[in-house]
Every structure is written in structure tokens, then in C-alpha cells.
Amino acid sequence: MRTIYVGHGGVASASLLMPPDGETRNAIVTEIAVWPEHRGKGWGSEILKEICRDADAEGITLMLSVEPGPGGLSAEGLAAWYGRYGFQRALNDGTVMIRLTQSSTTR
């Protein structure tokens, strides 16, 4: 699984942290960013779908912290967006979300 995903000439990107041991089957999505003038075109969704496909293919659980960026979705909007891709709230405060590996029959 890659740690950097870039789309549309660098206008949209995502980064992940992977454990150095190479055996732990999880990754932290640290950022998904789209230049403000290009938001709403589905490019962030495109990158997140690719990350989820790669994670499923390799049996990797994804984790992230819901932290809205300037000019982006609200915390609730961002959590709902991640929820559309299989992420679920891991803590009562809703800031941490997790996505377990999904088989092709559950997607």
C-alpha cells in the first residue's frame, strides 16, 4: 500500500502513516486535501476510494482523526463523508474513525 496518493496533477492528495514493522495490518490516514477551487468535483472521493480499495486488497484496517481543514466540511459533514466509505466512529466523541477491511461482498 502506498503512503502518498496524488490525483489530477497534484490538485488532490492524501497521505498515510504505515507501521515500520511491515507486519501490522493497519494504517493512519493523516490527510486528504484538495485545493479549494477544485473542491466539489469528487476528486477527494476518488482518492479515498482508491485508498480503501488498496487497503481491502491488502487486508489493512484504516484509522483517522476527523479534523476539518480551513474552508472545508464541518466535523459532522466530514464524519458523514468518511462514513460513506465504511468508516465508523471508534470513540464516543466521534473524532476517531476506523474502517475495517471489507470483502468484495460487503462493499
Rank of each mutant, 00 (worst) to 15 (best):
W35V: 06
W35Y: 09
P36M: 02
P36I: 01
R39T: 12
R39P: 05
R39N: 06
R39Y: 07
R39W: 09
R39H: 07
G40N: 11
G40I: 10
G40F: 13
K41D: 03
K41T: 03
G42C: 11
W43T: 08
G44Q: 06
S45M: 10
S45P: 10
S45E: 13
E46F: 14
I47F: 09
L48K: 05
L48Y: 03
K49S: 15
E50P: 00
I51Q: 03
I51M: 07
C52L: 08
C52M: 07
C52I: 06
D54M: 11
A55P: 04
D56V: 05
D56K: 04
D56M: 04
D56N: 13
E58Q: 15
G59C: 10
G59I: 07
G59V: 06
I60Q: 00
I60T: 04
T61S: 11
T61Y: 05
T61E: 15
L62K: 02
L62R: 02
L62A: 08
M63F: 14
M63Q: 13
M63C: 12
M63Y: 15
L64V: 09
S65A: 14
V66I: 15
V66L: 07
E67I: 15
P68K: 07
P70T: 14
P70S: 12
P70A: 14
P70I: 12
G71V: 12
G71H: 13
G71P: 04
G72T: 09
L73N: 00
S74E: 08
A75Y: 00
A75E: 11
A75R: 09
A75Q: 06
G77I: 06
G77W: 04
G77F: 02
G77T: 06
L78K: 01
L78H: 00
A80C: 02
A80D: 10
W81H: 04
W81R: 01
Y82F: 12
Y82A: 02
G83V: 04
G83F: 08
G83R: 06
G83A: 08
G83E: 09
G83Y: 06
R84I: 02
R84Q: 12
Y85K: 05
Y85M: 12
Y85V: 07
G86Q: 05
F87Q: 05
F87T: 04
Q88N: 09
Q88K: 14
Q88C: 09
R89V: 02
R89E: 14
A90I: 01
A90K: 08
A90G: 05
L91V: 12
L91H: 11
N92Y: 02
N92P: 12
D93K: 00
D93T: 02
D93W: 10
G94D: 09
G94F: 02
G94C: 04
G94I: 00
T95W: 06
T95S: 11
V96G: 00
V96C: 08
M97G: 02
I98H: 02
I98E: 12
R99E: 08
R99T: 06
L100S: 10
L100K: 13
L100M: 14
T101N: 04
Q102Y: 01
